[in-house]
Each structure stands twice: as structure tokens, then as C-alpha cells.
């Protein structure tokens, strides 16, 4: 197996809030290899976004704090880097696409200026060469007649085009890892498909690794190679896409998959997970999913389940499979 590009080990990020310590990310470990796509799936508040922000050390300060673990980028711990070094890594080696294309672009600068900014910083290009490179990057995300549109402003672009521009900004410096945080939630279905196909194609061509944060198993099925399912700040199952869909091991994963309606067949009644996701400031001592789990036993309520390896690369945190 190749050397992982990114290796996150036992990452813990806590927030101090008026309700007490919120363990947003509580011992998360995973790795990403060059050229692969890892899906990070979970419901709102499960810690998937905070995990990504922690990798880039962009956790909101001073409320949030990375209290433990290591984030190894080609073997070097990012948590030990200086702010200056981090700035070179962000956008240069690792870049990020955020959810909302409307707020990710600054309305008072032209599209060209915004795409060029990152290139100018990381590549130290200037003048004509910079402009040339910018047009090239926009062409990469299929903005037609890119050169002519460099001087246009965000409001002159449609939603789908704006999201592609955001993609262009993140890809401009040829990062080796792209973190995409629900990049398609605000897009229509036909535009969403176009965008996902575009990202896959760019990945095939450039070999960029991706972490895809989403709550939509459809996107996971379409784009990811491996999937990590998060619940209440921890990864409860990690597996290859095929294993996850065909042999889900954790009851939460199974319940989620059963509770999603699908397009292919008529279902009379969906399985529904009862209850609510737990509040992160008062987690039970045992498995966080136990109160909603149909298979929960006494032990689940009191002891946190161990990591169980099922086969190569398939891991679940559950007493039932232990």
C-alpha cells in the first residue's frame, strides 16, 4: 500500500460553550491516500465539518481548541507547524470548498481577481502570466470563453457556474488534497450531477485526493472510494464504498441506509430511527448511539465499544460485531 498523504490520529477538538465542554470531535482517526476520495458522512453536528477545519487548523477561536491527536501530512504533524507554515499549506497543499457558492465569493471583486489571488500568493506569478494561468484554471472547470469572463462579477454568473468558480479557486494551485464540505447542497439535481462529474474528472487527470463531507449517501455512492461514518464526534464505521453499502456493520450505518428512500424501487415503509441525535455536551458513558439502537445491551450503555476490524480496511465501533 502506498504511503498515506494525510493521516489523522486520535484527533480531539473540543468547544467551550455555555453548556460546558462540547466534544465536537472526540478521537477521530483515518487516513487518505493519494488520488483517493474519502467520504465523511454524518448528520449535522456529528463533527464532520469540525474534523475538516481541525485538519487545516481553522477551528473558530477562542471557543474551539484542538486538545489532542496528530494530523500527519506526509509524515509531518500539522498541529505542530507555525502559523506561517500553515498558511503555505492551506490553499497550496490542502484546499477547501465550502457549502455556499453565494457567500464563498466576494461580490465586489471580479471573478478573475478572486481566482488569481491564490495563484499569485502560492505561485508568485504576476501580470500577463498570472492572467493566462487564471483563464486556464477557469477553463478547467468548464467556464466557457473564460478569458472574456475574467472581468465579470459573481452576480453575472449562475449558481452552478459560481460553484465551479469556487472549485477553480480551490484547484488553482494544484493542491494534493481537496476538502469539499457539502459542495452541492445548494445546487439543483442536474447541476449537481454536472459538478460531481467535473470533480471526478479533474481528480482522474490531476490525481488530487479528496475528502467529501456530506450527509447524502447518494453522493457517497457516486463519488467516494472509502467512507467514514461519523456519529456524535466519532467515526463509528469506516469501509470501502462497496463494503459499506453491501455489508454495513454498525447498526447506525445500517439504520441510516434503511431509512433513506430510493429511486430504484417502491418501498412501502421506511425504517425510521427513533429519538434524536444526542447533545454533545452530555454524552452517555457508553456508545452514543445506544439509546437509539435496536440491538443495545446493558454493556452498550456503560462501556464504550472497541474498534473492531472486520476485514482489510473495514472497521466498526460496536460491541455487537466484536
Amino acid at each position: 500500500m502506498t504511503q498515506p498523504l494525510l493521516q489523522v490520529e486520535n484527533l480531539r477538538t473540543y468547544f467551550l460553550s455555555r453548556w460546558g465542554t462540547v466534544k465536537a470531535v472526540d478521537g477521530v482517526s483515518f487516513s487518505v491516500h493519494p488520488g483517493e476520495t474519502l467520504g465523511l458522512v454524518g448528520e449535522s453536528g456529528c463533527g464532520k465539518s469540525v474534523t475538516c477545519l481541525s485538519i487545516l487548523r481553522l477551528v473558530p477561536q477562542p471557543a474551539g481548541k484542538i486538545v489532542g491527536g496528530r494530523v500527519l501530512w506526509e509524515g509531518e504533524d500539522l498541529l505542530k507547524k507555525s502559523e506561517v507554515e500553515m498558511r503555505r499549506i492551506r490553499g497550496g497543499c490542502i484546499s477547501m470548498i465550502l457549502q455556499d457558492p453565494m457567500t464563498s465569493l466576494n461580490p465586489v471583486f471580479s471573478i478573475g481577481d478572486q481566482v488569481a489571488e491564490g495563484i499569485a500568493i502560492h505561485r508568485r506569478l504576476k501580470g500577463k502570466t498570472l492572467w493566462q494561468k487564471t483563464a486556464e484554471v477557469l477553463g478547467l472547470v468548464r467556464i466557457s470563453s473564460a478569458k472574456a469572463r475574467l472581468r465579470d462579477y459573481p452576480h453575472q454568473f449562475s449558481g452552478g457556474m459560481r460553484q465551479r468558480v469556487v472549485g477553480a479557486i480551490s484547484l488553482a494551485c494544484e493542491p494534493r488534497l481537496l476538502i469539499a464540505d457539502e459542495p452541492t447542497t445548494s445546487l439543483d439535481v442536474t447541476i449537481q450531477l454536472q459538478y460531481l462529474n467535473l470533480l471526478k474528472e479533474i481528480q482522474r487527470r490531476s490525481g488530487v485526493a479528496m475528502i467529501f463531507v456530506t450527509h447524502d449517501f447518494g453522493i457517497v455512492a457516486k463519488t467516494c472510494d472509502r467512507v467514514a461514518v461519523m456519529y456524535a464526534g466519532r467515526i463509528v464505521e469506516i469501509a470501502s464504498v462497496r463494503d459499506l453499502f453491501s455489508r454495513p456493520a454498525h447498526p447506525y450505518t445500517r439504520a441510516l441506509l434503511d431509512s433513506i428512500p430510493n429511486l430504484e424501487e417502491q418501498v412501502d415503509r421506511l425504517y425510521s430511527i427513533e429519538g434524536q441525535p444526542p447533545a454533545l455536551h452530555s454524552l452517555p458513558p457508553g456508545c452514543a448511539f445506544a439509546p437509539r439502537c435496536p440491538y443495545a445491551t446493558r454493556r452498550c450503555d456503560h462501556e464504550y465499544p472497541p474498534e473492531v476490524s472486520l476485514n482489510s480496511g473495514h472497521m466498526a465501533l460496536c460491541w455487537r460485531v466484536a
Binding site: 439535481v189 442536474t190 447518494g218 462497496r242 453499502f245 430510493n262 429511486l263
Partner: peptide, 24 residues
């Protein structure tokens, strides 16, 4: 047909032929 083909399937490897609509 384009709309249905663009909707994501719930399982991997089940996407049918995708009809990509030109333009907006």
C-alpha cells in the same frame, strides 16, 4: 428523463446512463 437520470442512486455502481442537459 434527464431529471431522473441526474438524480443520484442510493447504491454504488447503479447509475444508469446519464443524460447531461446542455446549458441552463
Amino acid at each position: 428523463r434527464a431529471l431522473i437520470s441526474a438524480a443520484l442512486r442510493s447504491r454504488p455502481d447503479t447509475q444508469d446512463e446519464e443524460i447531461v442537459l446542455p446549458g441552463e
